[in-house]
Design a protein around this nucleic acid. Structure first.
Lengths: 113, 113
DNA sequence: GTATTTTGCTTGCGAAACTTAGCAAGACTT
DNA sequence: AAGTCTTGCTAAGTTTCGCAAGCAAAATAC
């Protein structure tokens, strides 16, 4: 949860890149990168982490976890299937509720022409 | 990318909760929740989204994507839809449709006693 | 050996997250 | 009807992100 500054620095140097090279690739300023590597930044935004994960070729989720953000739980097969349900979007619902919502959705769309 | 304020409001109301109830469960101030629901917040932090995903029982990744954060590749909702896992059940849902469904869900629940 | 470029870094600064304190309108008591 | 509690909201303040500008040391060029 702390001192991941050194981690980012090691990552960059392992690629043999300068701060300004990374800046060019990621559009993250060298000033900010320097602060990041010296531990002055608490939590870079997900977007920044995503850019860095690309140029350093590290997993996005790895970086998210490294800086202390919650990471999506590894889902079981059954849970993966659940992601196709309405409940994944609108919160847990009963079977009857889902059926009723699907019917209402159908109604909404037919009404919208 | 915009107007997810109404989405969060619909989510809360579908659960029949007040701002202060959510505050108690999530430790996110009611003031901030109010700003969030009225569209004055651009990108709530992942931690805040995670707390909300728990009390609203919605997928954490769903919220992350909703507010515009990058989402791990294989888990992207849009790709899932392309593979048909959602589409074959309900088709893709627009933001407005989602809010409308939540409002209808709220209505359904208030009606059932 | 000096001039120029490169590299990492620090210092303000604006923007945005998030809080505390408090207000006004509505709902519930008595 | 008056008083109290609830609910959503706003205003002001703190903190952090992330950038532009600039600086000194090191590297490179001349």
């Amino acid at each position: 949860m702390e001192n991941y500054g050194g981690y980012f620095k090691a990552l960059r140097e392992s690629k043999g890149m300068t701060l300004r090279e990374v800046e060019k690739r990621t559009d993250v300023s060298n000033a900010y990168l320097s602060q990041l590597e010296s531990g002055k930044i608490k939590q870079p935004s997900p977007l920044t982490l995503h850019k860095l994960s690309e140029t350093y070729e590290v997993g996005y989720e790895t970086l998210m976890e490294k800086v202390g953000y919650p990471v999506p739980e590894r889902l079981s097969r059954k849970q993966e299937e659940d992601k196709g349900s309405i409940a994944y979007r609108v919160g847990s619902i009963t079977n009857d509720e889902e059926v009723e919502l699907l019917n209402y959705l159908k109604f909404m769309r037919s009404r919208k022409k």
